[in-house]
């Protein structure tokens, strides 16, 4: 009987532990992402993919977290009107507008902007994507 009582206690405690661990202290946003207390919101990497899902950059673009710019040269012959952006960023941050969709970057005089929003959703950094096209062959 004592063994039976102990087993019930163990099961109840396990259930309580499970319920407790399932309850996070952080709320979620509309996309199901946790709103945490992190304030960092840097862009750590950036890439543009062509229709073949390969990078179109001649070399990795330069990210300036002070000037909030991403500067890169895309290959000669790149279809600027159909590129898929993707990036890395600080933990818990998010990007707006969302990346991962075919996007028109063809207006080089009006660089597209992407905003990194911190985990606590209080700090925002807006980066301009400044592209140049590799010079045509001579």
């Amino acid at each position: 009987m004592k063994i039976y009582g102990n087993s019930v206690r163990v099961i109840l405690l396990s259930l309580l532990a499970l319920v407790w661990s399932g309850c996070s202290e952080y709320p979620m946003d509309d996309d199901g992402l946790l709103i945490t207390d992190r304030e960092e919101c840097d862009m750590t990497s950036f890439d543009l993919l062509g229709s073949d899902h390969r990078t179109v950059f001649v070399k990795a673009p330069v990210i300036d977290n002070e000037a909030l710019t991403v500067t890169g040269t895309v290959k000669y012959g790149t279809n600027l009107a159909k590129l898929k952006p993707r990036c890395g960023h600080s933990i818990d941050a998010l990007i707006t507008p969302k990346m991962g969709a075919w996007t028109d970057f063809s207006n080089l005089d009006a660089p597209l902007k992407y905003t990194v929003v911190s985990g606590n959703r209080q700090v925002r950094k807006t980066y301009s994507i400044i592209l140049t096209v590799q010079a045509k062959p001579q």
Binding site: K75, Y76, G77, Q134, K136, P137
Partner: peptide
């Protein structure tokens, strides 16, 4: 073959821009 450019084997429309048809 074009130095510094990924050119190589290309497929071009006859009516594409002249610089690519060079």
């Amino acid at each position: 073959k074009v130095a510094g450019i990924d050119y190589g084997h290309v497929l071009l429309s006859p009516g594409t821009e002249a610089e690519y048809l060079e």
